[in-house]
């Protein structure tokens, strides 16, 4: 393959992807019913106790019953990706002007940006604090 062929291929790649984007626009937001279905499929043993979906519908946190941690769901194109953060998982939360940015050392899951109001931020932070608690339960101060 010559350099010219390679250049032509790269241009063709971007054109084909642009056509795909045009023909199949993504109109997908995370919603409760969808989150339950995905959880049942990926982590059938886990039960959500509380669900928090961010304002953009791009990400959601599911606090699990039985102090089993959090499932984080992120929209990836027209699909969803789930991760189970068990108690003990190290999560770095950084406040942003529109909510929170969460980061772990998971190479396959880059930073998760949550569009949240002040109440959502504080709920998320309290859930994340549970991950750091030795038994995954909240303790009175």
């Amino acid at each position: 393959m010559s350099l010219l062929q390679l250049l032509g291929s790269v241009i063709a790649v971007f054109i084909v992807a642009a056509i795909a984007r045009w023909l199949f626009p993504v109109r997908f937001r995370l919603e409760d019913a969808h989150l339950h279905r995905e959880l049942e499929r990926v982590y059938p043993d886990l039960e959500p106790e509380e669900i928090l979906i961010d304002r953009a519908g791009n990400a959601a946190l599911l606090r699990l019953s039985g102090a089993r941690g959090i499932v984080v769901v992120r929209r990836l194109g027209d699909k969803a990706v789930l991760r189970h953060w068990m108690p003990g998982t190290k999560v770095t939360a950084t406040r942003t002007p529109t909510g929170l940015m969460l980061d772990t050392d998971d190479f396959t899951e880059p930073k998760i940006v949550l569009d949240l109001d002040a109440e959502g931020v504080s709920r998320t932070e309290s859930w994340l604090a549970l991950l750091a608690a030795p038994d995954g339960h909240a303790h009175a101060a």
Binding site: V13, F14, V16, A17, A18, A20, R21, W22, L23, F24, V26, G77, D78, K79
Partner: peptide
Amino acid sequence: AVYEGKDTLTSLL
């Protein structure tokens, strides 16, 4: 058949 723009771009790259 269903495509998604970014997914297609990644596959082709």
